[in-house]
Computed example of a mutant assay.
Amino acid sequence: MKSIEMRARTIEEAVAAAVAALGVRREDCTVCVLEEPVKGLLGRLGARGALVKVTAAESKAEVGLGFLQEILGLMGIDGTVTVVSGDECVRYQIEGPGVKALIGHHGQTLDALQHVVNLAASRGSQDRRRLVVDVAGYRQQREERLLAMAQRLAERVARTGESIELEAMASYERKVVHTALQDHPDVSTHSEGEEPHRSVIISYRRR
């Protein structure tokens, strides 16, 4: 956690300056008043401003990273985690010897790991970004295959007019397909079924 001490004319001004210096939101900080402001003679001579210590709580991304590294340690996996923060998600890229064991059958182990990391990091956080855990580029490669498959099947639906149901997918994979085809002029998509058997349906867009 990051902390900073700041002095200003009033407690409020000191807190505002400290929050700005830390680059965080006020609600994500705790404030300790070290010295109350003191008025001097005639309001000026001997005056002393307020001194506060402001501590920024760990961000959702930091909590997620710490939790993920703890899990890797418990599993005896010597992996290096690179963090890439974006507007919609925070991506943890794990590289190193033996890390592919984290993927599992069709990425099921990786999905479970990502789920618990999100649960641990989201508790009490106002940050709505999704935490994505990737291993040796698996998710990126999977997304590229999904995009290619979605376009290929969309063209088939547009040509035949018959709907196609894709295999059951995790929610983030379904979102990849929905996003890829949302502007397609001839097809539409929707999801059907209950988790973990929910799948995407690509349908002909009738005019």
Rank of each mutant, 00 (worst) to 15 (best):
S3E: 15
M6L: 06
E13G: 03
A14H: 05
V19E: 07
A20T: 13
G23V: 05
R25T: 14
D28P: 12
C29M: 07
C29K: 03
V33E: 06
E35D: 12
E36S: 10
P37G: 00
K39P: 00
K39G: 10
K39V: 12
G40C: 04
L41Q: 03
L41F: 12
L42E: 10
L45F: 12
L45C: 04
G46T: 11
G49H: 13
A50T: 03
K53M: 13
K53R: 14
V54Q: 06
T55E: 14
T55P: 14
A56L: 08
A56P: 14
A57I: 00
E58R: 10
E62H: 03
L65V: 03
G66H: 05
G66V: 06
F67K: 05
Q69E: 15
Q69M: 13
Q69D: 11
I71D: 00
G73Q: 13
L74R: 10
G76D: 09
I77Y: 02
T80C: 07
T80K: 15
V81Q: 13
V81P: 12
T82W: 00
T82L: 14
T82P: 01
V84E: 13
S85P: 07
C89R: 10
C89F: 11
C89V: 07
R91H: 09
R91M: 13
Q93Y: 06
E95F: 03
G98W: 01
G98R: 02
G98Y: 04
G107Q: 10
Q108M: 12
Q114Y: 04
H115I: 00
V116F: 14
V117D: 07
V117W: 08
L119K: 04
A121H: 05
S122A: 15
G124V: 01
S125C: 08
Q126R: 09
D127R: 08
R128I: 09
R128Y: 02
R129F: 05
R130F: 15
L131E: 01
V132P: 15
V132L: 15
V132Y: 04
D134L: 05
V135Y: 05
G137L: 02
Q140V: 11
Q141S: 11
R145E: 14
L147H: 07
A148L: 07
A148H: 02
Q151G: 11
R152L: 06
E155H: 04
V157E: 09
V157K: 04
A158G: 11
A158Y: 01
T160Q: 08
G161W: 01
E162N: 08
S163M: 12
S163W: 06
L166N: 09
A168E: 08
A168K: 01
A170N: 14
Y172Q: 14
Y172T: 14
K175N: 10
V177W: 03
H178A: 10
H178R: 07
T179V: 09
A180T: 11
A180Q: 11
A180K: 06
L181F: 09
L181R: 05
L181M: 08
L181P: 15
Q182F: 10
D183I: 08
V187Q: 11
T189W: 09
T189I: 05
H190M: 10
E192T: 15
E192Q: 14
E192A: 15
E194A: 14
P196T: 04
S199Y: 15
I201T: 12
I201H: 07
I202N: 12
I202V: 14
I202Y: 07
Y204V: 00
R205T: 15
R205G: 06
R206M: 09
R207G: 10
R207M: 02
